[in-house]
Each structure stands twice: as C-alpha cells, then as structure tokens.
Simulated scan of single mutants.
Amino acid sequence: MKKLMLSLALSGLMFAGFAQEKGNVKNQNDRGDRRFVKKEFQLDKKSAEEIAQLRTDRMDEKLKFTDKQRKEIYSLQLDQAKKDKEYASNRKESMERMKKDRMAQREKLMKNLSPDQQKLFKESFAENRKQRHNRKEGDRPTRRNRIERNGSDGRKGEENRKEAVSKNS
C-alpha cells in the first residue's frame, strides 16, 4: 500500500512538473511583436480590393454583419486600403530619395577627407555594415536575449546602462 501511494505521489509530481513546463513554452508563430505577419495578409502583394475583402471577411467572422453592413464596411475598408497603398508607394519613393541623398552626402564627405581618413572611414563603414549583417543573421544578441541574459546573471538594467556609458566614455 505504501509503495502504491508513493508511486502515485511521484507520478502526480512528475505530471505537475511537465504541465508547468509546457505552460511556459510559447507558440513558434506567436512572436509577440509586430514583425510576424500571416502570409495571407502580406499586403504589399495584394490589390486594394483583395485587402479590403480580406479585412471585411475577417471582421465578419467575429461580428456577423448583415448584408447592408458588409457592403458599407467593405467600402470603408476599400478606401482605407487605397490610402494605405498610396502611403506605401510614397514611402518607397521617399526611401529611394533618401538613399540617393545619403550617397551624395557620402561622396561630398569623402572629397573633404585625406586618403588616410578615407581609409579609416571605409573600414569603420565596413565594420558597421558587418555588425548590422551579423544582427540580421542572429550572431549579435537581440534586445530580448540581452534581457534574458541580464535577468539570469542577476544584473539590473540600470547597472548595464551605467556600464555601457562608462565603456563609451
């Protein structure tokens, strides 16, 4: 009887431990940030009509529109989708303009530097670019990883900021 009770107690503890472990694991698709977008809602690849239809359908699933409401909501969504498309195209144009302006600024800057300074500037530029690339590849820690790391080694965020300021000074 004692063995039976002991085995039941141990199995209960194991079950409770596994249940808690599963609760802390996040869904891979739920990243908790806005960067994750469902493939069906990648709006840059859809027309304004398709976007409006998707948005209206999604709202209709939850709100159960009448036919009249559905038409009105669709027209509102269509107007907004057209505005969004216009803003996106303007954003692309302005990004291109900004890129050209930066390149022109860099050329002007290079003309004013000595050959040694140009070499140092190019090396610095290449190093910054490498760091950005490494961050995209995942070699450089992201903010979430830094928070997890700092929480695990017991240091507070204020101490890290002071340390970073002292290193930069």
Rank of each mutant, 00 (worst) to 15 (best):
M95Q: 13
D60G: 00
S94C: 08
P115M: 02
N134D: 10
R58L: 14
K26Q: 15
F65W: 03
N160D: 06
N128A: 04
S166P: 01
L78Y: 10
K100V: 07
M59C: 06
K38I: 05
M95H: 06
L54Q: 02
F15C: 09
S94R: 14
S124K: 11
K156W: 00
L43C: 13
S169F: 13
K111W: 03
Q131G: 04
F15V: 11
L113S: 00
G154E: 04
F65P: 00
E49N: 08
G154C: 07
G138P: 02
K2S: 03
N112P: 00
D60H: 07
S124I: 11
Q118F: 01
R146E: 13
N112F: 01
S166W: 02
M5W: 06
E86M: 13
D67R: 07
E137K: 14
S7M: 11
M103L: 15
L10H: 02
N90E: 12
N24R: 13
G138T: 02
N90A: 13
A88N: 06
I73A: 06
E158P: 00
R31K: 14
R135D: 02
I73H: 01
R132D: 08
R144V: 07
M14S: 10
R55A: 13
G32V: 10
E40V: 13
E107N: 02
